[in-house]
């Protein structure tokens, strides 16, 4: 079932000096009531700079306020608005309609995450995996002395992990991962990349415990280097690189 609706000219937040418009197809599904998802269609005007999130918010404002979508910062920093946009996981706030080169834009909830409602998904499992790899510095001197200063690092040492510290936990990598598509127990590229982030940090002393944690059948060995996680990452984290470098420690190529 599909519903087609257009924004009234005087109500739209996007100036209608542009004659351009797209059909926005939004997946609607409430696991508590519905057996399967349906798509609702809306005709939305857009400008060169209009993002998919802005188009969804236009729909919420003018047609159907019950569309469930999670968002916050609108600038690819909070990692809240991840969704499938024309079949690929992307941040809605970071994806301009004009760059999709399509008159029809389909938005669905991220794959490999349980659906709360419509476009909002549960992040609990990803956060559990993230927490499992101990995403903090582990040191013997847990209590800093009063006259202690910051831990010094050279720029070269910072370069080893700073790329992976950019992770905003949006979950796009887990959504694109082919292993996540079939293995419910897989740790996932997000957590594995963060494991590398701390293992590569010269201030950290928890390498052995982290490597032990991921060295299991549903851990790092289930990554087959398809690289889809890196292709969808909106912050340039490149989880595939982190995972392979991390595996280098386990295989003895790195120390």
């Amino acid at each position: 079932m599909a519903q087609v609706t257009s924004i009234a000219e005087e109500q739209t937040s996007t100036p209608l000096s542009s004659s351009k418009s797209i059909t926005l197809r939004i997946s609607r599904y409430n696991p508590k009531h519905d057996d399967s998802s349906i798509f609702m269609e809306f005709t939305v005007p857009y400008q060169k700079w209009t993002t998919v999130l802005e188009a969804i918010l236009d729909v919420k404002k003018h047609f159907d306020h019950s569309v469930a979508v999670r968002y916050s910062c609108r600038q690819a920093t909070c990692g809240s608005c991840g969704m499938m946009i024309n079949g690929k996981p992307r941040l809605a706030c970071f994806t301009k309609i004009s760059e999709l080169n399509s008159n029809v834009i389909t938005v669905e909830p991220m794959s490999n995450f349980p659906i709360i409602r419509d476009l909002a998904v549960k992040f609990e499992r990803m956060f559990d995996s993230h927490h499992k790899i101990k995403p903090y510095l582990i040191r013997d001197d847990t209590e800093l002395e009063s006259d202690a200063k910051e831990f010094l690092q050279s720029p070269k040492e910072v370069e080893q992990y700073i790329q992976f510290a950019n992770c905003i936990k949006c979950g796009l990598c887990n959504s694109a991962c082919p292993t996540m598509a079939t293995d419910s127990s897989f740790v996932g590229p997000q957590a594995l990349a963060q494991a590398y982030r701390y293992v590569a940090d010269s201030r950290d002393k928890g390498k052995d415990s982290r490597l032990k944690m991921i060295d299991e059948p549903h851990g790092i060995w289930r990554c087959h280097f398809a690289g889809s996680c890196s292709q969808v990452c909106p912050k340039g984290v490149d989880p595939a690189m982190g995972i392979q470098l991390l595996r280098g420690y386990l295989l003895g190529f790195r120390s």
Binding site: E159, Q160, F164, K235, G236, D238, M241, Q244, L245, F253
Partner: peptide, 18 residues
């Protein structure tokens, strides 16, 4: 898998080519 040929970690610049 051994980390050979996967590049070196560096500060990423937009458009973030992996």
């Amino acid at each position: 898998h051994g980390g050979v040929g996967v590049g070196k970690p560096a500060r990423p610049d937009y458009p973030y080519e992996p």
